[in-house]
Design a protein around this nucleic acid. Structure first.
Length: 494
RNA sequence: GGCGCAUUCGUCUAGCGGCCCAGGACACCGCCCUCUCAAGGCGGAGAUCAGGGGUUCGAAUCCCCUAUGCGCUACCA
C-alpha cells in the first residue's frame, strides 16, 4: 500500500468494553505496529441517550493497563481532531446537506408511530423489514408544507434501487449485496446527531484511515458504508471484518458472562501480558504450535492472512493457565510488586503492611503455585500470621497415634532449637529425626507442616521453614504441642 | 420473514489438493518425580474434518445443495 497505514479503534462510551471489543482494538493496534503505521482512538459518542459517564476513562484506562498505546486520540491529541464525534457535528451536517443537494439523501418526516406501524405490518406479512421510502417520493407541495410547519425530520440516505455493492474483504474475501434489499437508512437523527453510518464514513475519510478492521457484526453495514463513500466521492479504505468473540453459551458477549470490563480482569488477578497473549490467540495464530510468546514476536508476525474467520468462545480456564505461565516467568521482584496490591486488598489489616523484603523471600515458594494474583493473600497469609488457627486434631496424621505425634513435636522442638535454619540443614536434620522416630516422611512432615503453617498444603516443608525462620517456627511448634497435650507445657525449648 | 457470514477434538487452533486414517494447546485421565500442593516429564482418551452431492488419479482443503449457529434487519453502536 502506497500510503501510510492508519487504523482506528472507535468505541462508543455506552459502558465498559468487553473482551471482544478490546480484542478488536488490539488487532488494530497490532496491525498498526506491524506496519509501522498509526493507531488512532476515536470516541463515537453520537448516541446521547446511552452515554455512560466515566465510560471514556474506563475504556482508555483499560487500554493503558494493557499497554496498548495510541498515536492520536483523547489524552494525546493529534492533527485530525477532534477525536470525539460529538465535537464534529458541523462536519456531518455539511456532508448531509451535500448529499441532499446531490439527491443522494432526503429529509424524512415519518413519525416514530408510522415507523413502528410499518414494521409490525412487515413482520405480520413476513416481508423484508425496512423503511419503505415514503418520504423519498414526497411531492413538492407536501414537502413544502412539512418544512413550513417545521416538522421534525431525519435525513435518510437514498440507496440505489438496483445494482450490487461489492466488497473485497481482507478476511472474508468477496461479499456482495443487492442494493434493492438495503433500505434507506438514517444519516442524521432528529436531534441533529449523526448515526454511526454517517459519522464513521466521514471520520474515517477525514482522518485518512487506511484500513477499517472491525468485528463481523458490522459486515452487514458494509454496503451502506460503501455506497456512502461513493456518494460522498470518497475513496473507501480497505475493510477487514474480524471474527467475534462469544460467551460459553455461544451468544454475543454480555454482562451475563462474568467479567465484562477489561479492568475487571485486572482486579481478578490477571496480568496484562497474559491477557494480551491470550486474546490475540482468539482469531489469530502464529503457527501450528507456538502459543506463549512475547509481544514483540506477535507484532512482528501479525498479518491479516493469519486471522481466522469463525467466531471464538472465550475460555477462562485457558486464560488462567496462561496467566500462571506468565507468573512463573516473572522475576521475584516483579511478582512481589504485582502481588502487593492484592495483599493489601485481601489480607486482614493486622497483617499489614507487608514487609517487602520478607515478601521477596516468600515469593519463590508460591511462584509456581499461583495462577491468578487474587490467590496471593490466601497463599502467603500463614507466613505473616502470628499463629495460624487450625484444629489440632489435624496434627495427628493418618496412621499415627496421638502419642507419636506429641513425641514427634517434642523431639522436633528440641532438634530445631539451635540448628542451622537453612533448607539443606533442616532437611538433613529432620529426615534423620523422622527415621529415628520410625515415622514415614509423609506422616512426620505432615505433622510438621500443620504445626508450622496451619495448612495441609504448602510449598515444600524445608524451604517453608527456612523462610519462616526460627523465631516463627519455634512458637508455632510449641503451640501445636501445647494444644495437643492440652495441659502440660514443656519448657520454653525452642 | 429477508440478507449476510460461519461450520476441524468439550474449548482455542494448525491445515490453503497428495506430507493428514488430521498436528499443537487448555481442560480431563494414567504413570514418573515427590514431604503435601504445584511445576515438570512421559503416555492416554478425545474430531466419521456439520451432512449430502459433485470436480479430480487424489479433498478437511475447490464447487453446489441442505442443516445448524451467529450477525444485521433501530432516529444503538
Amino acid at each position: 500500500m502506497a500510503n501510510e497505514v492508519r487504523v482506528r479503534y472507535a468505541p462508543s462510551p455506552t459502558g465498559m468494553p468487553h473482551i471482544g471489543n478490546i480484542r478488536t482494538a488490539m488487532f488494530n493496534w497490532l496491525f498498526a505496529r506491524h506496519h509501522g503505521g498509526k493507531f488512532v482512538v476515536r470516541i463515537e459518542d453520537t448516541d446521547q441517550e446511552r452515554l455512560v459517564p466515566g465510560a471514556v476513562d474506563g475504556i482508555l484506562d483499560g487500554l493503558e493497563w494493557l499497554d496498548i498505546d495510541w498515536d492520536e486520540g483523547p489524552r494525546v491529541g493529534g492533527d485530525f481532531g477532534s477525536y470525539f464525534q460529538s465535537e464534529r457535528l458541523p462536519l456531518y451536517h455539511a456532508e448531509a446537506e451535500r448529499l441532499i443537494a446531490q439527491g443522494d439523501a432526503y429529509r424524512c418526516y415519518c413519525t416514530r408511530e408510522r415507523l413502528v406501524e410499518l414494521r409490525s405490518r412487515q413482520e405480520r406479512d413476513k416481508v423484508a423489514l425496512g423503511y419503505d421510502g415514503r418520504c423519498k417520493h414526497l411531492g413538492g407541495g407536501e414537502r413544502r408544507i412539512l418544512e413550513d410547519e417545521g416538522a421534525p425530520y431525519v435525513v435518510r440516505f437514498a440507496m440505489p434501487d438496483s445494482g450490487i455493492t461489492h466488497l473485497h474483504d481482507l478476511i472474508r474475501d468477496d461479499v456482495e449485496w443487492q442494493n434493492e434489499l438495503v433500505d434507506d437508512f438514517v444519516l442524521l437523527k432528529s436531534d441533529g446527531f449523526p448515526t454511526y453510518h454517517l459519522a464513521v464514513v466521514t471520520d474515517d475519510h477525514f482522518m485518512e484511515i487506511s484500513h477499517v478492521l472491525r468485528a463481523e457484526e458490522w459486515l452487514s453495514s458494509a454496503p451502506r458504508h460503501l455506497q456512502l463513500y461513493r456518494a460522498l466521492g470518497y475513496e473507501p479504505p480497505e475493510h477487514g471484518h474480524l471474527p467475534m468473540i462469544l460467551g460459553p453459551d455461544r451468544a454475543k458477549l454480555s454482562k451475563r458472562h462474568g467479567a465484562t470490563s477489561i479492568l475487571e480482569y485486572r482486579d481478578d488477578g490477571f496480568l496484562p501480558e497474559a491477557l494480551r497473549n491470550f486474546m490475540v490467540l482468539l482469531g489469530w495464530s502464529l503457527d501450528d504450535k507456538t502459543e506463549v510468546m512475547p509481544i514483540e514476536t506477535i507484532t512482528e508476525n501479525f498479518t491479516l492472512d493469519r486471522v481466522g474467520k469463525p467466531a471464538a468462545i472465550f475460555d477462562r480456564e485457558k486464560l488462567s493457565w496462561m496467566n500462571g505461565v506468565y507468573i512463573r516467568e516473572m522475576t521475584a521482584e516483579a511478582l512481589a510488586d504485582a502481588m502487593l496490591p492484592f495483599l493489601e486488598q485481601g489480607l486482614p489489616s493486622n497483617l499489614l503492611p507487608v514487609d517487602r523484603e520478607y515478601l521477596l523471600s516468600i515469593v519463590p515458594l508460591v511462584q509456581e503455585r499461583i495462577k491468578v494474583l487474587t490467590e496471593a493473600p490466601e497463599m502467603v497469609s500463614y507466613f505473616l500470621e502470628e499463629q495460624p488457627v487450625y484444629d489440632s486434631a489435624n496434627l495427628v496424621q493418618r496412621g499415627m497415634t496421638e502419642e507419636e505425634t506429641v513425641r514427634a513435636l517434642e523431639r522436633s522442638i528440641l532438634a530445631l532449637g539451635d540448628c542451622d535454619f537453612s533448607t539443606e540443614a533442616l532437611e538433613g536434620l529432620l529426615r534423620s529425626l523422622g527415621e529415628e522416630l520410625e515415622l514415614t516422611p509423609r506422616r512426620f512432615f505432615g505433622t510438621l507442616r500443620w504445626a508450622a503453617t496451619g495448612r495441609n498444603v504448602s510449598p515444600p516443608l524445608f524451604e517453608t521453614l527456612e523462610v519462616l525462620g526460627r523465631e516463627r517456627v519455634g512458637p508455632r511448634l510449641q503451640w501445636a504441642l501445647d494444644s495437643l497435650s492440652g495441659k502440660e507445657r514443656i519448657g520454653s525449648g525452642v
